[in-house]
């Protein structure tokens, strides 16, 4: 049994988009309800959200971008950088709180107060570029956490595993020249899905060449393709990289009942993926694993998906559905 941390704060609901937008507060409510069921919540270590120290945000995002985002938000701008990025007065604060909460989780792992954690945050982060908001994302939570772990805790090698159905363009671009952060993403093939990057020949640049790996999956495929890709692409790459911590961009939108993609992963498929990741963490990082929510829009499925996800963090890969 692991000590698993859980980050949730009702303030994450304050970031509002619009009634027809898929990235809505109800997503987190569904996740939190799922985790409250069957006494699961009581088995978790609560993690507090707090505003991130600006110096950590600035390890990833340009100062000018952060200011532009804040200014837009307080001056009543409701669509920022791209039409997908709708916001309200509280968006900047919520984004800051989400990033800060993830940093708190990272700190607790490093202080060995917990072994691993799941951060149920909004807004998501993996599309956010150094100087641009994109695809519902503002601050790149996992990227900021990776830099924090490197700077504050002298972690040499961070592996980021991203199974959101969309490619994490922001995370890839932030670390593409960096050999100390390995980025792996499995997602729907970019010729069929947003954002149009993450082709299998994108492998990093300069010093970072070989430290980015992408597995594009064709629409209509599901559990079997994910099994094959993870075994072929992810496992040997982690074996070669030997990370000291694994950070997960956990998106649940590859589910067969999620209409944001053409990928058909089953609920069991998601569990299998997480079991693999947990077992990689067992082997290479002494169990240290930080999982952060990205997408996932099938409200009726998010509860069970999050519950399974957290149960696997607690109990390991073994006999979970």
């Amino acid at each position: 049994m692991k000590r698993t941390g859980y980050l949730y704060d009702s303030n994450f609901l304050l970031h509002e988009t619009s009634s027809w937008h898929p990235e809505v507060p109800e997503r987190l409510k569904a996740i939190h309800q799922g985790i409250q069921k069957d006494g699961l919540l009581e088995r978790l270590v609560p993690i507090k959200a707090s505003r991130a120290d600006m110096r950590w945000i600035e390890t990833v995002h340009e100062k000018a971008y952060i200011d532009r985002f804040n200014d837009a938000c307080v001056s009543g701008v409701r669509v920022f950088d791209s039409p997908d990025n709708q916001m309200c007065d509280m968006t900047f604060e919520t984004a800051l709180l989400a990033a800060g909460g993830v940093l708190n989780a990272a700190e607790m792992i490093m202080k060995e107060a917990i072994d691993n954690a799941f951060c149920a945050v909004r807004p998501p982060g993996h599309h956010a570029e150094r100087a641009a908001a994109m695809g519902f994302c503002y601050f790149n939570n996992v990227a900021i956490a990776a830099r924090y772990l490197q700077i504050e805790w002298k972690i040499q090698r961070v592996a980021i595993i991203d199974f959101d159905v969309h490619h994490g363009n922001g995370t890839q671009h932030i670390f593409e020249e960096d050999a100390t952060v390995f980025y792996y993403s499995i997602h729907e093939h970019p010729s069929f899905a947003y954002p149009g990057t993450g082709r299998d020949f994108e492998e990093g640049t300069g010093k970072g060449k070989g430290f980015t790996k992408n597995s594009p999956v064709l629409p209509g495929q599901g559990d079997e393709a994910y099994r094959a890709f993870l075994q072929r692409d992810l496992v040997p790459a982690i074996e070669a990289f030997v990370p000291e911590i694994i950070v997960v961009s956990a998106g649940f939108d590859a589910h067969e009942e999620d209409d944001m993609s053409g990928i058909r992963l089953s609920t069991e498929g998601f569990s299998w993926i997480m079991e693999q990741i947990v077992s990689l963490a067992e082997t290479y990082t002494r169990g240290r694993l930080l999982s952060v929510l990205e997408g996932g829009y099938a409200l009726h499925r998010l509860g069970e998906l999050a519950r399974n996800h957290v149960t696997i963090l607690l109990e390991g890969g073994a006999d979970v559905r």
Binding site: W20, H21, P22, S82, P83, D84, H127, G135, F136, H166, F192, Y194, P195, L218, P219, G220, D259, M260, G262, Y297
Partner: peptide
């Protein structure tokens, strides 16, 4: 379409009687 957000417009196309082709 320059968006990540296509579920609604896809539904709309279907409602209009268009055939959305299987990507494959």
């Amino acid at each position: 379409l320059l968006t990540q957000n296509v579920s609604r417009v896809k539904q709309k196309f279907t409602d209009l009687g268009f055939t959305l082709l299987d990507p494959l």
